[in-house]
């Protein structure tokens, strides 16, 4: 089985289990806030890590290449409160242009 299918099945099973755990096992009971607080903060930590590793990671090295121009364009679009599609498109276009002319 390819790595792709392993991820499809593994992540699918993990997600189904995560979603089911509250309604199936705990019913109406609430977890204590000491447990809830760190779980809520996982998203910003992981998303930020994804931004920088996808923009500057190159295998086991850090690289400043055309993707950095894309990220800069995305930041500009973000500051202009552009919709999500515009943010993504500006990053792709900026990177493609740098690659074309650099």
């Amino acid at each position: 089985m390819s790595a792709g299918w392993v991820v499809v099945i593994g992540l699918g099973l993990a997600t189904v289990a995560i979603k089911a755990v509250g309604p199936v096992l705990l019913g109406g009971r609430q977890l204590p806030p000491q447990v809830l607080a760190p779980v809520r903060l996982l998203a910003p930590a992981l998303l930020a890590a994804l931004v920088v590793t996808q923009a500057f990671g190159s295998g086991r090295d850090l690289a400043l290449d055309a993707r950095a121009a894309g990220l800069a364009a995305a930041v500009a679009a973000l500051l202009l409160r552009a919709p999500i599609l515009v943010i993504i498109a500006s990053a792709a276009v900026a990177t493609a242009l740098v690659r074309m002319f650099a």
Partner: peptide, 30 residues
């Protein structure tokens, strides 16, 4: 996967991002 990571790490990264659904699921349980 695209960056050359293993399937186990890929599943781990996705599952951690979905951990918030444990919390949201609790609040929807009623």
């Amino acid at each position: 996967l695209a960056a050359g990571g293993s399937a186990v790490v890929a599943v781990g990264a996705g599952a951690l991002l979905n951990a918030r659904y444990a919390v949201i699921g609790l609040s929807a349980a009623p």
